[in-house]
Design a protein around this nucleic acid. Structure first.
Length: 572
RNA sequence: CGGGGUAUGGCGCAGUCUGGUAGCGCGCUUCGUUCGGGACGAAGAGGCCGCAGGUUCGAAUCCUGCUACCCCGACCA
């Protein structure tokens, strides 16, 4: 491709809408342009990258035995009503009406549509297992779209749905998809991690997420370098941890603590560490039931874990100040577990405490020397906190570390949740109708592009992994208009590389070298060949890699071979 | 949804407090000189100052309402 026949649109300064390095670079390099909040056009250069990602995803899905199809983006409300998700999915579901006032939505995901296809098409166990996938635009009306293409409202997703006669067949496909995902992110040359995950609102029996590691990631990942354990912090099991400095229990004592409210105040007042205090959270669930959650002062509540405790009863929020007063007789800041008549749920680490401080449920008073075993033996003990750096790994083989990740893939074992709701059955060998067992597997294709830049950039711009670069090599001829030898050498090389199937971007603009170099570096082309009269006199051209590791003079005839060997080297 | 901020040419910004013919840098067009790391000179093009009302002889500027976009938050009693 010649720049004169392509469309490059680079900016020296990033538009003020962008904050994140990857977002700024995508705008500066002219990969995307914003239409509206969370809506982006893919410009020609960006589309080439997107297609690269799509191609790798498609190849690996095909290799893993999945079959491509394409479903409508707009879906009728009736299907969503069958699974009750028309109500449950909430405001993220973009609902639209047609001219007859009939309800539709723009699909945020396609379980309903694919299950509808399956119940019409699949009759016999002989047709199973089968795994369908598509690469398609989705729309999710995010609370707060941000980071450009990374949390856009309209985005491109690869979604696959598998159907099985039984769980063991699902397990086989699930494992195969897990392997396919590892191949995909490895081929894309990204630093990533597969982690055990919460199944969230989609539900089901097992789930893994794939995260591209980056500090700006919106997810926290807990992993154990020694055992290989890795899980989303939402799921990672928090083991009970004991305070080393714990003293044997002393008699309960009520202390006047005027103005002492937060855990920080408490530890200052009592001149101790926050791990010797317990915080009491009064929560209210969707049915109006209250409960008290007990956490060590230095620990954080994990809402997802807590919502699964029967005594909590599903999703919840902190109780209002009035409710808190009605239940405890005190205002927040003096709350404690003693004497409460609502269910008590204590974190595992709280249950080991023998000498802690807690509010007295009387404004301006705290207890010290509370003993869990003596005073709170009636409480439910559960894992309701987030793991912390240094916590023991759940497999007892090391200590956990934390890092941030961008979720680019998620696989689920769905079971029969959708097939039962939509009556999607097949006949087994005995002629019995059974619900189809399902799995689903998503990859955020457009998000991968942003995540890759977040991971691969420097002060000059993007540094694409070869696998997703819009072009593999840039040719920058110096004095193309003036110099006959430069022109001849440039055309010869361009022809040769093109014939070899290498994707070349020839900068045939009549620009000064600095402009060409800066642009090619900004848009992140992995290799660059500079052709100028200075070296051409000796039959040489300059070959350079984007990472700056090497810059060398090669004979013109050597270039194609060198690039070819660099690429194959990369693929191993 | 709560809090904060912004809106002036394609991009980045000044001008608003203190009302009086809309400016700077980059980019763009033309010509000339340059040409191995974002050149220089000259001449140009391009703006409903987010939208709607109001105040005023006069509004980018003051007042009211709206819209769009960005950031933080929606765990810590």
């Amino acid at each position: 491709m010649r720049v004169s026949e392509f469309f490059l649109s680079t900016l020296k300064e990033a538009p003020s809408e962008a904050e994140l390095p990857s977002h700024k670079l995508m705008l500066r390099a002219g990969l995307i342009r914003r239409l509206s909040s969370g809506l982006y056009s893919w410009m020609p250069l960006g589309l080439r990258v997107l297609r690269k990602v799509e191609t790798i995803v498609r190849e690996e899905m095909n290799r893993a035995g999945a079959i491509e199809l394409l479903m409508p983006a707009v879906q009728p409300a009736e299907l969503w009503q069958e699974t009750k998700r028309w109500q449950k999915y909430g405001p993220e579901l973009l609902r639209i009406k047609d001219r007859h006032e009939r309800d539709y939505c723009f699909g945020p995901t396609h379980e309903e549509v694919i299950t509808d296809i399956a119940r019409r098409e699949i009759r016999s166990y002989r047709q199973l297992p089968v795994n369908f996938y598509q690469i398609q635009n989705k729309f999710r009306d995010e609370i707060r779209p941000r980071f450009g293409v990374m949390r856009a409202r309209e985005f491109i997703m690869k979604d696959a749905y598998s159907f099985h006669p039984d769980q063991s067949s699902l397990n086989t496909t699930y494992t195969r998809m897990h392997e396919a995902y590892i191949r995909i992110f490895s081929r894309l040359d990204l630093e990533f991690r597969a982690v055990a995950a919460d199944t969230g609102s989609i539900g089901g029996t097992g789930s893994h997420e794939f995260h591209v590691l980056a500090d700006c990631g919106e997810d926290s990942i807990a992993y154990c370098p020694t055992s290989g354990y890795a899980a989303n912090i939402e799921l990672a099991e928090a083991m009970a941890v004991k305070n080393m400095s714990e003293n044997p229990s002393e008699p309960l004592e009520k202390i006047a603590t005027p103005g002492v409210k937060s855990i920080e105040d408490v530890s200052q007042f009592f001149k101790t560490e926050s791990c010797h205090a317990v915080k009491t959270l009064i929560i209210e669930n969707d049915h109006g039931d209250f409960a008290a959650l007990l956490l060590r002062g230095d620990h954080e509540l994990n809402e997802i874990k807590a919502a699964k405790i029967p005594a909590v009863g599903g999703s919840f929020r902190l109780a209002s100040e009035e409710s808190v007063r009605k239940i405890t007789g005190a205002s927040s800041g003096s709350l404690g577990p003693l004497g409460l008549s609502i269910p008590l749920i204590a974190d595992r680490s709280v249950a080991l405490l023998e000498n802690f401080i807690a509010g007295a449920n009387e404004d301006g008073f705290h207890y010290q020397h509370v003993s869990f075993s003596r005073d709170l033996s009636h409480a439910v003990i559960a894992d309701i906190r987030n793991v912390q750096e240094g916590d023991p790994s759940p497999d007892c083989k090391g200590k956990l570390s934390l890092c941030r990740g961008i979720e680019v893939g998620h696989i689920f074992q769905l079971g029969t949740r959708y097939s039962e709701a939509m009556n999607a059955t097949f006949l087994d060998e005995a002629g019995q109708a059974k619900p189809l067992v399902m799995g689903c597997y998503g990859i955020g294709v457009s998000r991968i592009v942003g995540a890759a830049i977040e991971q691969c950039n420097d002060e000059k711009g993007i540094r694409w992994p070869v696998a997703m670069a819009p072009f593999t090599v840039a040719i920058c001829p110096i004095g193309l208009k003036k110099s006959e030898p430069v022109r001849t050498a440039t055309e010869t090389l361009y022809q040769k590389l093109t014939e070899q199937g290498i994707e070349v971007l020839l900068d045939d603009r009549d620009e000064r070298p600095g402009v060409m170099f800066a642009d090619m570096e900004l848009i992140g082309i992995p290799y660059r060949v500079t052709i100028g009269e200075r070296n051409l006199g000796n039959g040489l051209v300059e070959f350079m890699t984007r990472n700056g590791e090497s810059s060398e003079l090669l004979a013109l005839q050597e270039v194609a071979g060198r690039i070819q060997s660099q690429i194959t080297q990369k693929n191993h």
